[in-house]
Structure formats: C-alpha cells, structure tokens
Amino acid sequence: MKHYLTPISILVLAISIYAGCWMLAKEWKEDHFIKQDAAASIRSTIDRGVQKPTLLMTADDLAVYLGINSEEALQLGPIPNPTGVTSELPYIQIGNQIYFSKLAVDEWLAQKGTVIVP
C-alpha cells in the first residue's frame, strides 16, 4: 500500500496546482476585461463630448464646459499686459499650467449673467 501513496500524492498535488492556476488565470482574465470595459466606457464618454466630473479644468475643458471655442476660452483666461495680468475668469496657475476651478467658474457665471467675449 505504501507504494501507491507517493504517486497518488504527486497526482493530487499536480491536480491542485493545475486547478489553482486555472482559477487565477480566469480571475485575471475577467479583471482584465472589466478594466478594458471601464476604459472603453470612459473613452466613449469623452468622445461624445460629455464633461467628466473634475474640479479643475484646462482651457480646452473650459471651452467644452462653456460651449465656446478654445480661442474664446483663452481670451477669458489670464492675459499679460503692461500693467499686469488681467483675467475675466478666476484661475489657478500651477507651474506653467493654467487651470480654472469649476466651482469658481459657476459662481462667476452666476454673478456676471451674460458675458460678451472680446
């Protein structure tokens, strides 16, 4: 009886290792597909022009949010002149990048009402 115990143990171990690898591979594959589906959903939302929920917006994001073109959005942002920098919209500068706070833009719109872009 002892002669059969070692081969049976090896067979059970091999089956266990195979089953474990199969379950892990299946889980990783499902997780990969879920991540791909989420990424595809985000890409399709962006492609449709739906604004993603953010607190800070770039000039391009601001243009989409306000329904204007990029040049008009840049005219509302900070413009250097001899007396300093003027801006129609409140903005945040981080390094060389300019961002607009969504909450501040909403408040600015509520205060200004109708705005004519120069």
Rank of each mutant, 00 (worst) to 15 (best):
E72A: 09
I42N: 01
E27V: 14
L11M: 06
I94P: 04
E71V: 15
K2F: 06
I42Y: 00
G49Y: 03
A40F: 11
Q75A: 05
S9R: 12
L103K: 13
K35E: 13
T6E: 13
V50P: 01
E72L: 11
K52S: 15
K112M: 13
S41R: 11
A19K: 11
R43S: 08
K29F: 10
Y18V: 14
E72H: 07
N81P: 04
H3Y: 09
K102S: 03
Q97T: 09
I15N: 12
T54F: 04
S9I: 12
D61K: 08
W22E: 12
T58F: 00
P80T: 10
A14P: 00
H32T: 11
Y18G: 14
V105Y: 01
T54L: 04
P53K: 12
L5I: 15
I10N: 06
Q111E: 05
W108T: 09
L109K: 08
P7T: 07
P78F: 11
G84S: 01
P7Y: 05
G67P: 01
M57V: 02
S101D: 09
I68R: 00
Y91N: 03
L24P: 09
S87Y: 06
A59K: 02
F33K: 14
T86D: 04
P53M: 15
W28L: 09
P82N: 03
L109V: 07
T45H: 09
V64G: 07
K2T: 10
L74A: 07
N81L: 09
I17G: 10
S9G: 13
I10S: 12
T45F: 13
L5F: 11
Q111L: 09
I94T: 06
I8K: 08
K2V: 06
A104V: 06
H3F: 07
G67V: 03
G67L: 05
S9Q: 15
S44W: 08
N81I: 12
L55K: 11
E27H: 12
E88Y: 10
I42M: 04
G113L: 00
T45E: 12
T54M: 02
Y65M: 01
P78A: 08
Y18E: 13
L103F: 07
P80R: 06
P80C: 06
N96M: 10
N96I: 08
S87L: 06
L56W: 12
R48A: 05
S101E: 05
L11I: 07
K2G: 14
P53V: 14
I98K: 04
K26A: 10
L74C: 02
S16M: 15
P78R: 14
Y99V: 03
F100R: 00
P53L: 13
E88V: 13
L55C: 06
L89R: 02
P7V: 05
R43I: 09
T58E: 01
G67A: 01
N81Q: 10
V50L: 03
A59M: 04
G77D: 02
G84L: 08
F33P: 03
L74G: 02
A19V: 11
A104W: 08
L66K: 00
L76Y: 02
A38V: 15
I94N: 13
T83P: 13
L24M: 11
G49D: 01
H3S: 10
M57D: 00
E72C: 03
E71D: 05
I34G: 06
L5M: 10
I79Q: 04
Y18F: 13
Q93I: 08
P80A: 05
A40T: 12
S41Y: 10
G84Y: 02
H32S: 14
L55A: 11
